[in-house]
Computed example of a mutant assay.
Amino acid sequence: MTEFENKSLAASPIKALCWFRKVDDTFVALNKTDNRQSLLDHLNTQNNRIQFTMEQECDKTIPFLDVLISKRNDKLLTSVYRKPTHSGQYVNYPSNQPNRIKRGIISTLTKRAIQISSINLQEEINHLKTAFTPPKTATHWWETTGSLRRAGGLTPSATEAPHI
């Protein structure tokens, strides 16, 4: 694919300001005066088995992978992107998953927010806190389980809910 890109872009009448690809997703920035459709048509005539589609920015934003890229005052700003179909659920809290898995999910999503977000970081952290605050039934379940384990002589640290 790299060879295809290099040859196609070298022969293109439109020169991209930037071209980033991750597997089958490509982020391209062009000059305001460049004809986007001309570049798309050019790429799609290079190999009939490789066809591109184009998603254009809407309200000066565009999602790319799990990043929402926003344009403000000729600067690109980034924040975490979740699809509209995202349910907000990551793992069923009282599930039989080990606590280290639950803590790992929280840790990974927090690191992702810190690495990706040039704006709205606190908003994303608040989303994670809300998403990982156990519902009352889970809190009760943890308390009950902790009480049962303590009664059985086991230490409570292995059964308590992780804290954010």
Rank of each mutant, 00 (worst) to 15 (best):
I125W: 06
H86G: 00
T110R: 09
Q56F: 05
E55W: 00
H42P: 02
I50P: 01
I101M: 09
P84T: 05
K102F: 01
L109H: 06
Y93D: 13
I114S: 06
Y81P: 03
L77Y: 07
V67Q: 08
T139L: 14
K111Q: 11
T61D: 02
P63G: 05
R103A: 11
K83M: 01
K129W: 00
R103Y: 07
A29F: 10
A113S: 14
L30N: 09
T137E: 15
A29E: 15
D74Y: 10
T33N: 10
T133R: 08
K75F: 09
P98D: 10
Q115S: 09
T78C: 14
Y81N: 00
T33R: 07
L40N: 06
R103I: 06
N92K: 12
T85Q: 05
R82I: 01
R36L: 10
K111E: 14
I119Y: 04
I101G: 04
Q115I: 08
N73Q: 14
W142A: 15
L30F: 02
N96E: 11
S87E: 05
P84S: 07
H42L: 04
V67K: 09
W142I: 15
A138Y: 11
Q51D: 03
D59Q: 12
L43D: 09
Q122M: 08
L39M: 12
I125M: 15
N35E: 13
L40W: 01
T108C: 10
N96K: 09
H127L: 12
Y93C: 05
